[in-house]
C-alpha cells in the first residue's frame, strides 16, 4: 500500500505537482510554529494542537448547541438570544404534553405536535419494517450466483447518492395529476388519482419514496454480511440435506443477525428524523397528513412568522430522548445477545 500511495502522488505528473506546490509551501510554513509547540510543550502539546481545530468547531457548532438546546427549552418569548429570553420552567413541555386524550390529537393544546408525533410513529413502524424486509430480500437476491452482479447492485444502490430534493422532484413529477402514473392507470382502464392530495396516498408515497431512496444503503450492509458467511457452511448444510428454507432460517438469517441489528438501528434513527424528501414532495400536506417531527420543529422554531424557539427546543429535546432511548435499546439488545452467545 505504501508503494501504491507513493506512486499515486509521484505519478500524478507535472500538473499535480504544480497544484501541490502551494500546499507544500503552506505545510512547511505550519511546520515552524508546530515545531515550537513540540519543543515547548512536548508531545502532549502537539496532540492538543492537532485536536484543536476540529474540537473547536465541534464545540462551537455541536456540543455548545446541544447544551444550549436544553436551556432554550426552559425559556419563552420571542427573543433569539438566550440572555434576552425569560425563564418559564417546564411550561414548554407542559404545553406540548397538554392533552385531554392522548389518543386524539385534536384534544391537545399543541395539536400539530401530536399529529407530527402520530405521523412519525406510524411512519417509523411501517417504513422501517418495509425497508428492512425489502433490503433483506434484495440482498438475498443479489447474493445469489449471478452474472453482472455489479450492475444489479448499482441499480438498487444509485438513488442513495441522489439528493432528497432530486428524489422528491423525480417522484413528484411522476405522481402529479398529469403524471406518468395516472397515464398508466388510464391506460389500464382506471380512474386517475390525485396522489398527493389524498391523505392516505400522500403518506403511502412518503413511505415509498424514503424506501426507494435508501434501500440501496441497507442492502449494501446486508450484502456485505451475507458475503462474509463462509461458503463452507452452505456446503455443509447441503451435505446435511437441509432444504432451502431451512438453510435460510437456520444458517443465513442467524449469521446475518449482527448486520440486521445495525440496519434496524440505523433505519430507526433515520426514520425518526424523516424530513427532506417528504417536505419537498408534500410540504407536510395535505393538511397535516405527512407532517413529521423535524418539520414541526423547523416550522415552529424557525419558519413561522412568530418564532417559538422554546417550544421547538422542547420538542427537539423530546425527539432526542426518543433517539437516545432507541440507541440504548438496540445496544443493550445486541450486548445481551452477545452475552447469551458467550455462554
Amino acid at each position: 500500500m505504501t508503494v501504491e500511495t507513493r506512486q499515486g502522488i509521484a505519478g500524478g505528473g507535472h500538473f499535480a505537482s504544480l497544484l501541490l506546490a502551494p500546499l507544500r509551501w503552506a505545510m512547511n510554513l505550519i511546520d515552524r510554529p508546530m515545531s515550537f509547540v513540540q519543543r515547548r510543550f512536548g508531545l502532549g502539546g502537539v496532540a492538543a494542537t492537532f485536536l484543536a481545530p476540529n474540537m473547536l468547531v465541534f464545540g462551537i457548532f455541536v456540543l455548545f448547541p446541544m447544551t444550549l438546546n436544553v436551556a432554550y427549552s426552559f425559556t419563552g418569548g420571542g427573543a433569539l438570544f438566550l440572555n434576552n429570553r425569560v425563564f418559564v420552567g417546564t411550561l414548554q413541555y407542559e404545553t406540548l404534553l397538554a392533552c385531554r386524550d392522548f389518543l386524539d390529537a385534536a384534544s391537545c393544546r399543541e395539536d400539530r405536535f401530536w399529529r407530527a408525533v402520530g405521523n412519525t410513529g406510524f411512519f417509523v413502524v411501517v417504513q422501517v419494517t418495509a425497508l428492512v424486509l425489502v433490503s433483506l430480500a434484495t440482498a438475498l437476491v443479489l447474493n445469489r450466483e449471478m452474472r453482472a452482479r455489479g450492475f444489479w447492485r448499482a441499480v438498487f444502490f444509485f438513488p442513495v447518492l441522489l439528493s432528497p430534493v432530486v428524489v422528491a422532484l423525480i417522484w413528484k413529477w411522476i405522481l402529479q395529476r398529469n403524471g406518468l402514473l395516472n397515464a398508466a392507470l388510464l391506460e389500464l382502464g382506471f380512474e386517475p388519482v390525485l396522489w398527493l392530495v389524498n391523505r392516505g396516498w400522500a403518506m403511502f408515497w412518503a413511505i415509498f419514496l424514503s424506501i426507494w431512496a435508501h434501500l440501496g444503503f441497507y442492502t449494501l450492509i446486508l450484502l456485505a454480511g451475507l458475503q462474509a458467511i463462509p461458503r463452507d457452511l452452505y456446503e455443509a448444510a447441503e451435505m446435511d440435506g437441509a432444504p432451502r428454507w431451512r438453510v435460510l432460517t437456520r444458517i443465513t438469517l442467524p449469521l446475518l443477525w449482527p448486520n440486521m441489528v445495525v440496519v434496524i438501528l440505523l433505519a430507526l434513527i433515520r426514520a425518526v428524523q424523516v424530513f427532506d424528501e417528504v417536505f419537498v414532495l408534500t410540504g407536510g400536506g395535505p393538511g397535516t397528513a405527512t407532517l413529521f417531527l423535524v418539520q414541526y420543529i423547523y416550522e415552529t422554531g424557525l419558519a413561522q412568522q412568530v418564532r417559538n424557539l422554546g417550544l421547538a427546543s422542547a420538542a427537539s429535546i423530546l425527539m432526542a430522548v426518543v433517539l437516545i432511548v432507541l440507541t440504548l435499546i438496540q445496544l443493550l439488545a445486541s450486548a445481551w445477545r452477545e452475552r447469551k452467545e458467550q455462554r
Binding site: 457548532f61 455541536v62 448547541p65 446541544m66 436551556a71 424530513f275 423535524v294 422554531g301 424557525l302 432526542a320
Partner: peptide
Amino acid sequence: TLMVPLSVIIIPLFSVING
C-alpha cells in the same frame, strides 16, 4: 455525538450562527 443528528440541534445552532 455520532448519535445526535443535526436535526435535533437546529434551533440552538441557528442562534449560534446568528450570534
